[in-house]
């Protein structure tokens, strides 16, 4: 190995950067280019079209069925719905993931490894099959619905084909992506810091707030990102457990590359989604930097 740290760093980084540049960056450039083209031919892209912003304009404005240009709120509503659903899932994952990660960190080494194993095992099965299991559990003549119905004062509550079912399914799908990064942080945490704070008279909750949470921040940030983003593009769980009455961002992008065969519009929708994620990430980075200072 060379002694020059900059050169050594470059060597270590090259495989990762090259892979990403070739397999993510290059396709992405192609995508942005396609979003400026028009649909056409049987393949979905008219490669000879003059580049334009038409696909982006269509997101907010469209010709109404009676010929006038109107503000089309459908896509905005779908966008908002997807963001809310993703935020709700991230919140729920944090709510349940944080205590689990904390508890795990306090266990003995052997117990911790066992817990890690227990948490990951359910995710070795296919997403769709897991959602199917929820379909069986939540069905209206299932035991859970009957149990809920017998104790609820307002009679049976529909558990399936609503937002609650989708939240249960999505949280289920992404919970370990919250627990694992949090646990990684807590696991190497020096607990003497907390003890010191406590000994110096800080109350338990104050010690928790002032010492533990700041240290957990990288884990919370990583976990939230890992949950929020796949959630935003999710379409299988909402379709299966939500009854398909509303569309999600993932659905409409998928539609453009499938039956609608309008790849340029699909690409434009994807670029918008991408811009949204970038904003979230930049905001998060700024916020973290401010906290550090």
């Amino acid at each position: 190995m060379t002694g020059n740290p900059a050169l050594r760093r470059l060597g270590l980084l090259t495989p990762a950067l090259a892979t990403i540049a070739l397999l993510i960056g290059l396709p992405l450039i192609l995508l942005i280019w396609i979003s400026l083209l028009q649909k056409g031919g049987s393949s979905g892209v008219d490669w000879n079209a003059a580049p334009s912003l038409g696909n982006y304009i269509r997101l907010a404005w469209e010709e109404d069925f009676d010929g006038t240009m109107i503000l089309n709120t459908s896509y905005l509503v779908i966008l908002l719905r997807s963001v809310l659903q993703a935020a709700l899932t991230t919140g729920l994952s944090l709510l349940f993931g944080l205590p689990v990660a904390l508890w795990m960190a306090g266990l003995s080494r052997g117990q911790r490894d066992l817990m890690l194993l227990l948490i990951t095992i359910p995710f070795w099965t296919n997403l769709l099959v897991r959602n199917y299991a929820w379909l069986i559990i939540l069905r209206e003549d299932g035991w859970l619905a009957q149990a809920v119905g017998s104790v609820s004062p307002i009679g049976p509550i529909p558990l399936l084909y609503n937002d609650l079912a989708v939240a249960i399914g999505l949280t289920y799908s992404f919970l370990p992506f919250m627990i694992l990064p949090l646990y990684t942080v807590f696991e190497k945490f020096d607990w003497r810091l907390l003890e010191a704070a406590h000994d110096l008279g800080a109350s338990r909750s104050r010690a928790l707030r002032r010492v533990l949470i700041p240290i957990a921040m990288p884990g919370i940030a990583a976990g939230s990102l890992l949950v929020f983003i796949p959630c935003l593009g999710a379409f299988v769980t909402p379709a299966l457990l939500g009854g398909g009455k509303t569309l999600m961002l993932g659905n409409i992008i998928q539609m453009q590359f499938g039956a609608s065969r309008n790849w340029p519009f699909g690409a434009a929708l994807a670029v918008v989604l991408l811009a949204l994620m970038l904003i979230v990430m930049v905001a998060m980075a700024i916020w973290r930097n401010r906290r550090v200072r």
Binding site: G40, S74, Y75, V77, L247, M255, S260
Partner: peptide, 17 residues
């Protein structure tokens, strides 16, 4: 054709938007 498909898309997005 493409025009009919786009119309179909608009109906669907309005219906479920």
């Amino acid at each position: 054709g493409p025009a009919a498909r786009e119309l179909r898309d608009r109906i669907w997005t309005r219906l479920k938007g």
